[in-house]
Amino acid sequence: MRWDDLKHFLAVARAGQLARAAAQLGVDATTVGRRLRRLERAIGQTLFEQGKDGQALTEAGERLRERAEAMERQVREIETGAEGGAELSGSVRISASEGFGTWFVAPRLPALAEAHPRLIVDLVASSGFLNPSRREADVAILLDRPRKGPLFVRKLTDYRLRLYGARDWLAAHGPVASRADLRRLPLIGYVPDLLYSQELSYLTEIDPALQPRLRSTSITAQHRLVAAGAGVAVLPCFMGDADPMLVRLLDEVAVTRSFWLVTHADTRRSARVGAFVEWLGAAVSAGQAELMG
């Protein structure tokens, strides 16, 4: 049995699909499949069942996953010890919401890359999150505080959201002087039944009668719709204030949310993870004006 085969096995167990695991590993799906078959021959058991959505672990696969993850933890501990007096190298995978990852983290990453030129950073900025409990990510920045799992969790920062509209569009459609005015304007928001967190339900918090007419699972798409003059939306201040074409509406309306920093309990002492967490903490402290508007 080879450790490289176990790494491929863990990637498929976490991703749930051969193709997705292959993309994460930087190899083709044929290679991953070949390694899985070799591993199954070595232990004489079937590890996955093929389902309509991908690969699901068998009971034998679940047992092997526990043992492989224990081995992985030992490898990480060895790597962490080796990193102590040397320049940081290897990779760290970060999962963040699309808005925070794209608009706040990404523009600041060059400073981290310059400070640690041998460190590889995977920024997964999307609607939905990778799970540190299943080792899908080294660090996750979540909208909800997780309540279970072998995790280390701390509050990263608060951030504020406000109403925005395009400057030219608002000039043509009249001023917005009260919450009642919002009811006559086209609103932009999330698709209600596709919310990946209830923390994203902003409009009903402002006024229960408000319903978005144009809806998207992407906060970046919502921003583009506002900028194109499609209507009014609730946006994070670090997005809305950064666009000079947008105007903030109704100063008395503000929604406050929080980001939570999450790592696996066994990996938070890794030098790579520690370096990223320290850098992100400093970036958040320096960026409070942007985060809070």
Rank of each mutant, 00 (worst) to 15 (best):
R2N: 12
D4P: 06
K7S: 06
H8P: 01
H8R: 15
H8E: 13
A13Y: 04
A13M: 03
A13V: 03
A15M: 10
G16I: 03
A19W: 05
A19M: 14
Q24E: 15
A29L: 06
T30S: 15
G33C: 08
R35D: 15
R38Y: 02
L39S: 02
E40H: 07
R41T: 10
F48D: 09
E49N: 08
Q50K: 15
Q50A: 15
D53K: 13
G54R: 06
G61V: 07
R63M: 07
A68Y: 11
R73F: 08
E79C: 00
G81I: 09
G81T: 00
E83P: 10
A86C: 07
E87V: 09
G90I: 00
G90H: 01
G90C: 04
S91N: 09
V92W: 12
I94A: 05
W103P: 00
P107C: 05
A113K: 12
A115I: 09
H116V: 02
P117N: 08
R118V: 02
L119Y: 09
V121S: 05
D122R: 06
L123H: 01
V124P: 08
A125Y: 00
S126Y: 08
I141T: 05
L143H: 11
L143K: 00
P146C: 11
K148R: 11
P150E: 13
L151Q: 10
V153G: 10
K155T: 11
T157Y: 05
R167Y: 03
D168F: 06
D168S: 14
L170Q: 07
A177F: 01
R179S: 05
R183G: 07
R184W: 03
Y190I: 10
Y190Q: 10
L194S: 14
L194V: 07
L194P: 06
L200S: 09
S201H: 08
S201L: 14
Y202G: 00
Q211S: 13
T217W: 04
S218A: 00
I219F: 06
Q222M: 15
R224Q: 14
A228N: 00
A228H: 00
A228R: 03
G229L: 06
G231N: 03
P236I: 08
G240K: 01
L250E: 05
D251I: 01
A254V: 12
R257W: 02
S258M: 07
F259D: 04
F259M: 09
T263E: 09
A265T: 13
T267V: 15
A271K: 14
A275K: 08
W279M: 01
W279T: 02
A283P: 06
A283M: 15
G287D: 06
E290S: 14
E290P: 07
M292Y: 01
